[in-house]
């Protein structure tokens, strides 16, 4: 089947690619653009390890078809640092030790980033509710929630 041309903005850079119509955005990011921050875990939209921010909305890139991204603005975890300086969320995750195996981390950070972008000072309850979109099977979420809280304070 013929490939399709898509153009989108990824981490402040415009790219034009030929993609298969039956390719997920996650595959495009990982295999065509070598952006391996977003992970494939369940592949079914349950776990959130593949979360990226598209047009301001955090979404499961394993459930998005590559042609759907045409014209979109996408941020992945690789695009968070600015001129070599880490995003406050990344700093806070490191400082609080909110990482164990690390497989869910980039998804957690992207979900949290979208939350902080629309609400600079979320309450603990709001953080817990938002972060429950992502599954982590090692840390127990406590330090992750603390890290998001701290990053929220820093960005204000």
């Amino acid at each position: 089947m013929r490939t399709m041309k898509v153009t989108f903005q990824i981490n402040n850079e415009e790219v034009t690619l030929q993609v298969r119509p039956y390719e997920t955005l996650l595959e495009t990011l990982r295999e065509r653009l070598s952006l391996t921050g977003a992970k494939e875990a369940c592949g079914m939209g349950s776990c959130g390890a593949c979360t990226v921010v598209m047009n301001g909305i955090p979404l499961r890139s394993c459930l998005v078809l590559a042609p759907e991204a045409d014209g979109a603005v996408i941020t992945t975890v690789e695009g968070l640092q600015q001129e070599g300086k880490l995003h406050p969320l990344q700093e806070a995750f490191m400082k609080k030790g909110a990482v164990q195996c690390g497989f869910c981390t980039s998804g957690m950070i992207m979900t949290a980033k979208a939350l902080l972008d629309r609400n600079k000072t979320p309450t603990k309850k709001e953080i817990v509710r938002t972060i429950s979109s992502n599954i982590c099977r090692c840390t127990g979420y406590k330090k992750i929630v603390e890290a998001v809280e701290e990053a929220g304070k820093k960005t204000t």
């Binding site: 399709m4 119509p21 039956y22 592949g43 079914m44 394993c62 078809l65 042609p67």
Partner: peptide, 11 residues
């Protein structure tokens, strides 16, 4: 997980 083949149309 890999998708089956299909065409994509934007309406």
């Amino acid at each position: 997980m890999i998708l089956p083949k299909f065409k994509y149309q934007r309406a």
